[in-house]
Design a protein around this nucleic acid. Structure first.
Length: 106
DNA sequence: AACCTGACTCGCC
DNA sequence: AGGCGAGCCAGGT
């Protein structure tokens, strides 16, 4: 099981209507330092549509500008469709929609 | 086979 | 308070 596989597992565990930070995913797969690797893993997302990568945002709730499947606006629309609210145009309301806990992937 | 880079995050100026 | 470097893994050149 590679780190990438773990990343995909973790991302798929994010419940609908919630979001997680790259850091949270990183901690779930082995360490906070892997946050960058998490981003790369989603970059090479092997199964778009299966892996809810739109539920992964920056630690401050902002959406990455380098979003790959339609732009940050598309990601924002997907999240709003799930009931996730935004504090402003680009920041998710992390206080209420960030997942409280993400299980460790082994 | 080694080096560079990439959807990040934290710590030190 | 804002800007920059370090650290992690995998894949391409």
């Amino acid at each position: 099981m590679t780190v990438f596989e773990k990343v995909y597992e973790a991302v798929k565990l994010i419940p609908e209507g919630s979001v997680a930070t790259y850091g949270q995913i990183a901690e779930a797969v082995g360490g906070r330092r892997l946050s960058r690797v998490v981003g790369y893993a989603l970059h090479v997302n092997p199964q778009p549509g299966v892996i809810p990568c739109h539920r992964v945002v920056m630690r401050d709730g902002s959406i990455s500008t380098a979003f790959a499947f339609g732009g940050a606006n598309r990601q924002k629309a997907l999240l709003e469709a799930e009931g996730v609210l935004f504090t402003d145009e680009t920041h998710v309301d992390m206080e209420h929609f960030r997942v409280p806990f993400l299980p460790l992937i082994g």
